[in-house]
Computed example of a mutant assay.
Amino acid sequence: MPTTQFQVRKDRLETTRTVVLPDEPLADGEVRVRIEHFAYTSNNITYAAFGDAMNYWQFFLVAPQGDTPDGGDRAWGLIPVWGFGVVQETRCAGVAVGERLYGYWPMASGVVLRPARVSPQGFFDGAPHRAALHPVYNQYLRCAADPLHDAAHEAQLALLRPLFLTAWLIDDFLADNHFFGTCEGGQRGAMLLSSASSKTAYATAAQLARRPEVEVVGLTSAANVAFCESLGVYGRVLTYEQLDTLATNTPCVYVDFAGNGALRKAIHSRFSALAYSCSIGGTHVDQLSGARDLPGPRPVLFFAPAQAKKRHGDWGAAGFNERMARAWQAFMDQVTQPAAPWLAVQTHRGPDAVQAAHALVLGGRGDPRLGHMLSLLD
């Protein structure tokens, strides 16, 4: 069966194409995985926006199409996504046809992996072009052995699990650094979260809300205020135009999920007691800008794998996984509460539907309560 790929121009994310490639025979040690469905959120737009700076384009290389003199398609990329696949063909001992996997995939109907460090829990992709990339993105989990896997909630897992891990690590990073002194002397530090309706932001807010020493302030557009307030994890929800309702001397930390340069400048200029500026992502792709010549602390890009590595050293792998699993279960209880679930799953199947979902998420026009699950399978 041929493989369908959804490719984007690296420099113009709104420009896309669908490419159908014939499947090549597997080499010894390789497996072919059918990618059944994957989540698509503003987090994936962040992967694309920071694709060159943080090597996200390196995970899944575009096959040559002859667009450049050397035959490579350097202008095009495959946005990485999280989701589920099934082993369709194998020439790797220890990995069987029919095994269901959770992991990091290209936007495609299938992919070839080279399993390494195979264990009862899963394996890592040992492809040479991924060798220098962070292992957290190279690991594939066997669903049959994954303690978090729930067949009835695969969509929620794909949509929220990678975002939740980042959110949980942001909360841990801030607490590990004592909220950068904003809570000294009995005062409550204000954690300012932009793009508050985004899934990573509200997952972070859900963790921070359990810490009485801080106040979680969500910043969002007027259209999303009611949604953010309905979650019950923000102490206050303000529109971007209401920043002036916070005192200029408020001890605060800025957690930037939007990547909006004008908003970052406004926050740095307004708050004289801004203790730390943490950049997470770039949901406002059209307004991304640098961090030069800003008053106050220089923005620092948060890299979740670095905090994960630190905590693996502090707690060990078992301790890390146990803490994360407890926090995940508590978060899922909030997300799936029957009376008012936080997430409604919408499925998109086929290249045209995937293109429409990409345009919707890229444009930031989606309903924050919707979670998009995509598939390029016919």
Rank of each mutant, 00 (worst) to 15 (best):
E89D: 14
P25W: 14
A152W: 10
S279N: 10
G350L: 02
D378N: 09
A152F: 09
N138T: 09
L294T: 03
A151V: 01
A304E: 04
L141D: 08
V335C: 11
G290M: 06
V118D: 00
S194R: 02
E36M: 06
A205H: 04
M1T: 12
T16N: 13
Y140T: 05
S289M: 14
A152V: 03
G72D: 12
A308I: 09
G186K: 07
P305T: 07
F38G: 11
D244V: 06
S197C: 06
N224A: 01
G290R: 04
F6G: 02
Q287Y: 09
V354R: 01
P80S: 11
D11G: 11
S277G: 14
C228V: 01
G281S: 05
E36D: 13
T182L: 08
F59S: 02
P115C: 10
P251N: 05
G110Y: 07
F320P: 06
R100V: 06
A318V: 12
A262C: 11
T283M: 15
A205F: 00
A145E: 13
S194D: 13
H348K: 02
L301I: 14
L159E: 12
R161I: 08
V97Y: 03
G189C: 00
D23C: 06
L301F: 15
I35S: 01
N138P: 03
G122V: 07
G110N: 04
A96F: 12
C278M: 15
A258E: 00
L246I: 03
T248K: 15
G85I: 01
C183K: 00
G85K: 01
K309F: 09
E30T: 10
V361S: 02
T16A: 10
H134D: 09
T41M: 13
D378R: 13
E215R: 15
Q187N: 08
F59V: 01
V335L: 13
G72Y: 12
H268F: 01
R323H: 08
V216G: 04
S272W: 03
H358P: 08
G186Q: 07
